[in-house]
Every structure is written in C-alpha cells, then in structure tokens.
C-alpha cells in the first residue's frame, strides 16, 4: 500500500517538475529581454535541483543530494555573475 502511494506521488512529482522545466525553458528561449532569459535560467537551476532531490528519494541513494547541492551552488554563481554583467557591463571590476 505504501509503495503504491509513494510511486504515484513520485511519478506525479517528476512529471510536474519536467513540465516546469519546459515552461522555464520556454521563458528562457522567448524572453523579450536579457533579464527574462537570466530569470528563466535561474528557475531552471532550481527545478533541476528539485528534480535531483526527487530522484534521490525515488532511488534511495544519498549521492543525488550532493549533485543537487552542486547544482544549487553553480546556479547561484551563474545567476549572480549574469545579473552583475547586466547591471554594470562587466563582471569583475
């Protein structure tokens, strides 16, 4: 019984997150201005991190968590540097 409930919830969560991937990618591809694309990329990183956590719950493997934290850190650095570039025109001044 608990396996059925968990499998339904895990499948639903993965489908939701993959559809969310599609929406964020659409915003990143069609965003009218540069900051829309950066916001879409940041949302894509968050979605990827959540999908890795859900896959980790699905597999019972602790190592997906480490991939999730790497994705979170890389996404933070990428978004901050892109926003800095949009603001000033250069990243390190």
């Amino acid at each position: 019984m608990s396996a059925i409930i968990m499998n339904i919830a895990l499948t639903y969560a993965q489908i939701c997150l993959i559809v969310a991937f599609g929406f964020a990618t659409a915003r990143m591809l069609k965003g009218p201005r540069a900051q829309d694309r950066v916001l879409g990329l940041d949302t894509l990183y968050i979605n990827a991190m959540l999908l890795f956590l859900v896959i980790g719950v699905d597999n019972g493997n602790v190592f997906f968590f480490e991939a999730a934290i790497v994705i979170a850190i890389v996404g933070f650095v990428a978004t901050v540097s892109l926003a800095k570039f949009l603001m000033r025109g250069e990243v390190i001044e």
Binding site: A9, L10, Y12, A13, Q14, C16, L17, V19, A20, F23, A24, R27, L39, G40, T43, I46, N47, L50, V54, V57
Partner: peptide, 15 residues
C-alpha cells in the same frame, strides 16, 4: 512531494 512539486509547477506557469 505533491505539495512541493505542485508549487514549483505553479511558479513556473506564472513565470
């Protein structure tokens, strides 16, 4: 899990 993924999907629809 359902709450978390549904909220993420709603946020992306809003995006």
């Amino acid at each position: 899990l359902v709450i978390g993924s549904t909220l993420t999907l709603l946020g992306n629809i809003g995006l």
